[in-house]
Design a protein around this nucleic acid. Sequence first.
DNA 1: GCCAACGTTGGC
DNA 2: GCCAACGTTGGC
Length: 155
Amino acid sequence: MQYWLIKSEPGTYSIDDLASEPKQTTYWEGVRNFQARNMMRDRMRQGEKAIFYHSSCKPPGAVGIVEIVKEAYPDDDAFDPQSEYYDPKSTPDNPRWYRIDIKLVNKFPRMVTLDELKARDELADMALVKKGNRLSIMPVTAEQWEVIMAMAFNS
DNA sequence: GCCAACGTTGGC
DNA sequence: GCCAACGTTGGC
């Protein structure tokens, strides 16, 4: 079972937005990067869990846990010229971009900030804490997951 | 608002 | 296939 971390800008879609959805479920879309697309499409599986991370905000950090409730399927906003996610190179016959459905598992009792994550030696290998990281989806090892859970729930 | 990182595009 | 230009991400 692989763990993940996925980013969202809270100004666009926050964990509280997810919490207020009727079934605390939404689709997670807007991935327009091939490396992230490939991970989402080829490796993310139903039932796996991901840390929900708020980016481009003050402060950035991990805010909760979500579960993948539906594996990758075509992101049809890419077909819609009115959508901000429109991509004329993606067509229903040959979709280029995908989305997954996620469900809220818990919101952390407190945010674990990027500064705190950077301060932990056990997390030094995470792409997230490295300079210039721009991936919106990244794998998380079981060890890293446990460290972050302890930070969120036991401190 | 700035800047580093880095992916994508397009000319050749 | 190379590489310069450009655009985007995201922390600070």
